[in-house]
Design a protein around this nucleic acid. Structure first.
Ligand code: MN
Ligand code: MN
Ligand code: MN
Ligand code: MN
Lengths: 220, 220
DNA sequence: AATTAAAGTTTGAGTAGTCAAACTTTTTTG
DNA sequence: CAAAAAAGTTTGACTACTCAAACTTTAATT
């Protein structure tokens, strides 16, 4: 079994590879993400490479192997099932569960994970709309686009909030922006890099392009 | 915060001190309990002593300080709340939950612990009848005696099974011996160091004194 | 192209936890 | 009580993880 530290590195690498156009991660961002020094990250990459969890050449990019990918998806599955449990059953705040799940994700046995998943009715997404990989590691991402790309008068439904930051989630929830909520884009102003949207029964809210880029929606 | 390893040492020390007449634990038993060598246990005791979690003189007994005791009770609380959740909500087997809780007990934040405890209705005992300390560290052990001390024809109710061993718990459950179950002691034979008991609607079962000593009962 | 900044690596050191094996002290027992 | 057994300690070595700081390589800028 991978240690808790290794699981955290692998999960961070997975996310970094996703969001990089080259599909490879770098040591500096990895270190920053995990709150360690670059040197620490480098030595860990060397160990992960030795364990065949990543493929990496000195001074070049880092990519997960199939084995590493499997672990990343498994940790993400545990993380998201736990978040769902914490919000749906224990009524924890949407904005708090990420940090809690960050620790718990390393302590769930396959047996408990499956029972929990079953108890929750095999959810397909977590409270933020993040897809939950199934036990085999298949993950089905719903087709969506960032709210920032919408035009005026578009009617859309929020499917996912792509930011685990507490204060952003707090803001999103306060504004009524959660997965499943319908929005109308009232106006778009490229000059101020912002747009105004209104939730079903809410007041109009102005969002910066940056904030709107974190809100994924689908057309309705 | 105490590390996972430290929490395990402290909890083991608590149990050993309880069951020792002198109220003090020894390095050999501690090491055996945790599956480490005596030398490892010795060096850990030195560190715990430095952190003021235990009081220990070389070649003499080990006792928890008030600070150590607090940690022990806190870990036990987490352990037993988790066991209760695993049995009551996730329907895990009585015999399996101990090992699962052994890992999870180190990953629960105070917030999640309290929500879980609340969700379960503030249980006072875990599935084995072990008392759950409250948030302040108060633990109320129900008055009880070992089944081994009962006389023939006595009618009693099981309140606790004092053994976390999987196979013993399996056997106990198979025989219908769980907390809350009423028993009649049919006969006691000191020669064979055994006794025959019968559950409410069950067949008579012969128990060795050793097994019967692990079953705590109260008179009814 | 030369300079600078950023990214990545190496080295030396430190903490937490562990073992094997030699050793010392205490306890048990013939 | 002397010998043996059990309990406890010490030493040297190892893995996992981390940092600070010096260093090297690559990428950006001017
Ligand atoms: Mn984590
Ligand atoms: Mn999430
Ligand atoms: Mn434990
Ligand atoms: Mn228990």
């Amino acid at each position: 079994m991978a240690t808790e530290t290794v699981e955290n590195y692998i999960k961070a690498l997975y996310a970094l590879c996703r969001e990089s156009p080259s599909g490879e991660a770098g040591v500096a961002r990895l270190a920053q993400e995990l709150g360690v020094t670059k040197g620490t990250a480098t030595s860990m990459i060397k160990r992960l490479s030795l364990a065949r969890l990543v493929k990496a050449e000195p001074y070049s990019g880092i990519a997960l192997t199939a084995k590493g990918n499997k672990i990343a998806l498994d940790v993400m599955r545990r993380h998201r099932v736990i978040e769902t449990f914490l919000v749906r059953i224990l009524k924890l705040d949407w904005a708090d569960v990420h940090e809690e799940a960050e620790r718990l994700e390393h302590a769930l046995s396959p047996r408990i994970l499956d029972r929990l998943d079953h108890f929750l009715g095999r959810p397909s997404t977590d409270p933020h709309g993040d897809p939950i990989p199934d036990a085999a590691g298949n993950v089905s991402e719903a087709r969506s686009k960032p709210l920032a790309k919408c035009r005026a008068r578009e009617r859309v439904r929020i499917v996912r909030i792509k930011d685990q930051n507490r204060s952003f989630l707090k803001f999103a929830a306060d504004s009524g922006f959660m997965p499943g909520v319908n929005l109308v884009v009232q106006s778009v102003s490229p000059q101020s890099a912002s747009l105004v949207v209104r939730a079903a029964r809410g007041k109009p809210v102005t969002l910066s392009q940056i904030a709107a880029a974190k809100i994924l929606v689908k057309m309705i």
